[in-house]
Design a protein around this nucleic acid. Structure first.
Lengths: 228, 228
DNA sequence: CCTACCGATCGGTAGG
DNA sequence: CCTACCGATCGGTAGG
């Protein structure tokens, strides 16, 4: 069965910057420079290493080569900086996921066949490991482990992005369940699968362990049954 | 020094006060009362809800019905309180795990057969869910998600307990791998399995979701192949 | 984006 | 275990 059509993500148009309901100071919307990006990267790294509460805005400022008060020129407060790290991370993850799927679908089409559900899962898992453990991989772990520090409004915004990310997986898992390759209720299976994947940020050591391809292979072996 | 002093029971009527300073070391070893237990339970609950850094020792004192300075009568500092929560949690988890295994083994023996590896895993998974999500289940989640805040020495102590806990699983997983019921390298499989289980503290809602037995059933279905 | 600064809070302590 | 307290640090701001 082909679920490729169902899965193909509508490629996002230009990343439109739109203000949501909340009125903000104009200053914080005007972020053309790379200073803001440096702040985000420094914050992501430190939040991941030490946690949100254990990282001071002074730490972040220093890591970005600024003085203690300067982060507040770019972000309204510390919470907004955390929310921006997560938003940025999720948008990047969504783009990487869509790109990986598009590439795989196009490759299969060029060879005159469609992706199997199993192949779809492989692409998604591999892309997810990249997001979790690859280069620039501080943003999503921060989202996974520091969402408690967000305000309710920020949390629901991040949750919406996360739902969009997970939505791509749902038809794949359902198809695998229908074919008998995935046993157990698909909703629970999705939670368990994400648990297994997301936990890797706690133990994975690129220097000593397997490659991301090895990990992907293991996950598929572990979770999928072979259809005879 | 008199013989009577040497033989006196640890149930001293009154803590002996020295005229100079406070007898710090001795005091922290002597944990008679339930006040210390109340502190630990309050700390575990708050550390889990808010995180270690976001919880003040004042919060904990208040939750235990004490004044702000009193926790430091029972614990040398905030870090030691965290370490005690984790130590207590791991010891309890080890006991529950051993008890669950013993019960299952005895039950099987009474019926004249031995536990299969599959049944062993079921017992371990079920016990682990109980530890993570059952009553008094704040201690282990704190250990899983707040170990970053420990000192190196405390971390290695907790790690030793954790290794003992995981060691019970190793032969079970190896047996399942040998029989073909578990695919993929057992070491990686163990990490993935614990990831899937431990992640449940992030989404499990006893009011809306399945029971712990349901979860256990799902995990076995998901991770194990059927031997024909 | 920097300088200079503030009020609040925190972990922890002395002494009883 | 309480009272009274302290030094350090933190998020955040006014004004340039």
């Amino acid at each position: 069965m082909s679920i490729a059509t169902e899965l193909s993500e509508p490629s996002l148009p230009e990343p439109v910057r739109r203000t949501r309901g909340r009125p903000r100071k104009a200053v914080h919307e005007r972020d053309d420079g790379n200073r803001r990006q440096e702040l985000l990267r420094a914050a992501a790294r430190l939040f991941r290493q030490q946690g949100f509460d254990a990282t001071s805005t002074r730490d972040i400022a220093t890591a970005a080569g600024m003085r203690s008060g300067s982060p507040f020129y770019h972000f309204e407060n510390k919470e907004a900086l955390l929310a921006a790290v997560m938003r940025e991370g999720m948008q990047s993850a969504l783009q990487r996921q869509a790109a990986a799927m598009d590439t795989a679908v196009a490759q299969a089409a060029a060879q005159g066949h469609t992706l199997s559900a199993r192949e779809c899962l492989q692409v998604l898992v591999r892309s997810h490991f990249e997001v979790l453990l690859g280069p620039d991989s501080d943003f999503i772990p921060v989202m996974l482990y520091e969402w408690r520090s967000l305000s309710a409004a920020q949390r629901s915004e991040v949750n919406r992005l996360k739902d969009g990310y997970e939505a791509v997986w749902v038809p794949v898992l359902k198809a695998l369940h229908a074919s008998g390759e995935l046993q157990g209720e698909p909703g629970l299976a999705r939670m368990m699968l994400f648990g297994a994947l997301n936990w890797s940020v706690q133990w994975y050591d690129p220097a000593r362990q397997a490659t991301l391809d090895d990990l992907t292979q293991s996950v598929l072996q572990l979770f999928l049954k072979t259809t005879s």
